[in-house]
Design a protein around this nucleic acid. Structure first.
Lengths: 187, 187
DNA sequence: CGTGTCATGTAATCAGTTACATGATTCA
DNA sequence: TGAATCATGTAACTGATTACATGACACG
């Protein structure tokens, strides 16, 4: 079947919330949606242009004093329809590739201390991540109180938090197992 | 910096365990490693060839009666060194893109029943997934008892199980929230 | 007699990343 | 004076997926 460009729909979706520039979109995915979606400039700008050619979005230049000009895009009615249509479709299963797990899988080939360091590192990342999401949660709960989209945003955020907690706890369990494995050998 | 081809290292890694054909590798990622790593033929065969040209693996044709000929690849000493070197490197953070979460994020634009159906669907997948991993766990625990790699394989498997459980529970929580949201409106 | 498995591979295409280019303003 | 932020974009590349092509054997 046709391969569907996910970036395309992500951009359309973000534009359903409010008109934005490519730069705004990048910032959003970097700071607010990063825990489940990311994009990069080299993909955003060309696709925005393509969407404009297809009439799904319209861009208008905005002149600001001091700062560089921005090009702000808005969804057209056609764009909105196309996005909503996609939204209703079931999401195909995406292939999973986790480099950290791949390395752990071959952990036997490394000194145990190195593996432990890797896991500890991952644990640290999960903890930081969790803290960031909690801050983000407070912020958007206040900033968007009463917004009809908020319950859904909080659900996705909650996924991120659950994932981070799971990761942290799983790392601890791995470290524990590796240590007890050493004890066993001593005994 | 240089973009590193992950498939390349995944293939080298699998070949550290035993000589294999491209077909074997595909089967492995489909049935045993699918919960953290996947590959497809269109990528496996060309890369295997490239690795052979570079002297990291050697392939020898194997004739079998009845079945088509296989080409079985083994790691060379150079290949083993290159893999182990990569293994020691810290894993760069990979961009996250979860289509299901992206859709949930925009859940407000869909009828509530549709969102609930999507979540319920995801919950079902998580449950099936968990059951599969439990079966797999039993199988490899028996088949590879005493194998030095086993503890690491079980750790990655445990990650898969933790993830599936987390997903299942999070889905339940989402469904609960959506339902209670309806109650609130009635009141 | 049809479906599934074994088995290898290529071509076409698309998705996505990185590096580069440009330049003004603000803040330490 | 140097770094960070704002802001847009292109070119080159590589990573990854899909579809296609081929064909024998086993099983029900």
């Amino acid at each position: 079947m046709a391969r569907e460009n996910k970036t395309r729909y992500a951009l359309l979706g973000l534009l359903t919330m409010s008109p934005m520039s490519g730069y705004d979109i990048k910032k959003l995915t970097d700071f607010s949606l990063g825990y489940f979606w990311s994009e990069n400039y080299g993909h955003i700008y060309p696709i925005l242009k393509k969407l404009e050619d297809e009439g799904l979005v319209t861009g208008r230049a905005e002149h600001t004093r001091g700062k560089p000009d921005r090009k702000v895009f808005s969804l057209t009615e056609t764009g909105r329809r196309e996005f909503d249509e996609w939204l209703g479709l079931p999401s195909g299963k995406q292939p999973i590739r986790n480099e950290f797990l791949l390395k752990l899988f071959f952990g036997r080939r490394l000194p145990r201390a190195d593996v432990e360091a890797k896991v500890l590192d991952e644990r640290g990342r999960a903890a930081v991540y969790l803290a960031e999401l909690e801050t983000l949660e407070k912020r958007i709960s206040e900033d968007f109180r009463g917004n009809e989209g908020l319950p859904y945003w909080l659900m996705t955020l909650d996924f991120g938090k659950s994932f981070a907690r799971m990761m942290r706890d799983w790392c601890d369990e791995c470290l524990r197992k590796m240590k007890s494995n050493i004890e066993e050998r001593k005994a």
